[in-house]
Write a protein that binds this DNA or RNA. Structure first.
Length: 203
DNA sequence: TATACGATCACCT
DNA sequence: GGTGATCGTATAC
């Protein structure tokens, strides 16, 4: 139990078994859960409101499609491992590895509703509204201080980054759409977000 | 060794 | 609606 101002982090982490489940189920299951980071005693967190699934065996948009390289190696490790990569030379994106070890698949965390230590998030982001703090995969990494240093950390053992459990959302409160930023011909309805949340990246 | 480009963002019109 | 920033990686030569 960790007190953070008006909030409390329970450190009740999502059960490891949940991470190995089918990627699309995990993408839904993570909605409503809390992503937490801790650096030198500074906690930050947010409620996950948007995710996308990527699966290397059947999905041309996935980093692991057909090839295993030093870059995507972490995506083949055991479920619950964080995979962080740099995109467009300047933004980080954070994923949670899914499926059995040896299968390149993960869930991209795309947006958070800011919760613990919002002042620190403002400091890191340099923006002027709560909505702008974590409403995109690059934004939320900056807000929570997530860099590639955290790639390879595991959500059940890391002292720096983890996920706290929350009841699954009701299916009627989850909106399903195609993924963002995917080239034509590779569209799949693998994006999930919380209905009516003002904190998602795009409508 | 060289080149093209991406699971993005902020700022502009 | 459009564009520039910026660099690790994959691919080609």
């Amino acid at each position: 139990m960790i007190k953070c101002g008006m909030h409390v982090l329970t450190n009740a982490r999502l059960s490891p078994q949940l991470y190995s489940q089918e990627t699309l189920h995990l993408a839904r299951r993570l909605l409503g859960c809390e992503l937490v980071t801790s650096q030198s005693g500074n906690y930050t967190s947010g409620i996950i409101v948007e995710t996308e699934a990527y699966h290397g065996e059947i999905d041309p948009a996935c980093h692991c499609y057909h090839t295993r390289t030093p870059r995507n190696e972490v995506m083949f490790s055991k479920a619950g491992t964080f995979y962080v990569y740099l995109i467009y030379g300047m933004h980080y994106c954070v994923n949670l590895v899914s499926e059995k070890e040896g299968i390149g698949a993960a869930v991209l965390i795309r947006a958070l509703k800011p919760k613990v230590n919002i002042p620190l998030m403002y400091e890191r982001r340099g923006v002027s509204s709560d909505r702008a703090l974590a409403s995109g995969p690059g934004k939320l990494c900056q807000a929570l201080g997530i860099t590639r240093d955290l790639s390879g950390e595991h959500c059940t053992t890391s002292a720096s980054i983890w996920i706290e459990q929350h009841r699954p959302l009701k299916p009627e409160n989850i909106i399903v759409t195609t993924r963002i930023g995917i080239r034509k011909g590779q569209e799949l309805p693998w994006r999930f977000y919380v209905k009516d949340s003002p904190f998602i990246s795009r409508t």
